[in-house]
Design a protein around this nucleic acid. Sequence first.
DNA 1: CTCCTTTTTGCAAATCATTTGCATTTACAT
DNA 2: ATGTAAATGCAAATGATTTGCAAAAAGGAG
Lengths: 140, 140
Amino acid sequence: MKDTGRLEAELKKKGYKLTEQRRLIIEVFSENPGHHTAQEIFDLAKRKLRSINFSTIYRNLELLSALDIINKLYIESGTSHYELCGGTHHHHIICKGCGETREMNICPYESLEEEKLNELGFKVTDHKFKIYGYCSKCRP
Amino acid sequence: MKDTGRLEAELKKKGYKLTEQRRLIIEVFSENPGHHTAQEIFDLAKRKLRSINFSTIYRNLELLSALDIINKLYIESGTSHYELCGGTHHHHIICKGCGETREMNICPYESLEEEKLNELGFKVTDHKFKIYGYCSKCRP
DNA sequence: CTCCTTTTTGCAAATCATTTGCATTTACAT
DNA sequence: ATGTAAATGCAAATGATTTGCAAAAAGGAG
Ligand SMILES: [Mn+2]
Ligand SMILES: [Mn+2]
Ligand SMILES: [Zn+2]
Ligand SMILES: [Zn+2]
């Protein structure tokens, strides 16, 4: 039994149901830390529940993102990547050569002055910061 | 005659040719400041050169991005957006409701300490910073 | 300017990720 | 145990982007 706690709570709060597949998706993320594509999650999940369907994966990755249980990244390769939330807040540095994505604990948001933000007139919900470059293997 | 200068130079440098369609794409960007999808660029370009093809747009948006003449944004709506480089360095704040994307002159990269960056072992080439939220019209 | 080689274009078809409609199954509150 | 709303599996649809290929255009050399 995994820490179904958070998941169950968030789902119930909005009238969603706690299904085997939802539990499984979270389980797969827990057991495989890091960033994953829908395809990867599907493959991993399928090993444990042969009947699971790709649509279900997509629908739930979307839902879980909306619930802030997972985080949808756009590693700009045409394919979205997802990671479990709840780790420490972090951002990413991405190699343009091989696509390797490393986490950074640097967060530039924290040092922004509130007045500058208010000035924008937005109700801010979140932010993303990415650095691009070449890792040691990929120096061109 | 537009400022074909930069374009011509960058192309020649790598053995690419200066074609009418390439010139046109830049022209369209110049005359229509801001962010555009491939579709939008195609529509605008088509008005001036009826024969222009969608593949050509895509191929060149890709090429021009590689040459750092235009900038490919990922406004996370499944469709890439592009903007002309060369304006002032800036980042974006995006409304999750309507998709409106406003520019911010805030750049968090500048205040990062070099040592932290070196520590990452990457040869950094560029970065992106995005803030998400809801604009005044879209407060949920 | 003309010729030659290389790159680019237009076109059509293909690919890839993601989404949707619908009939059936499941969760869970009563 | 029952009823209803929500979720799943399946197959088909979408939408953006990419690709192969033959014909056209660009740019350098002569
Ligand atoms: Mn991460
Ligand atoms: Mn911009
Ligand atoms: Zn942050
Ligand atoms: Zn910046």
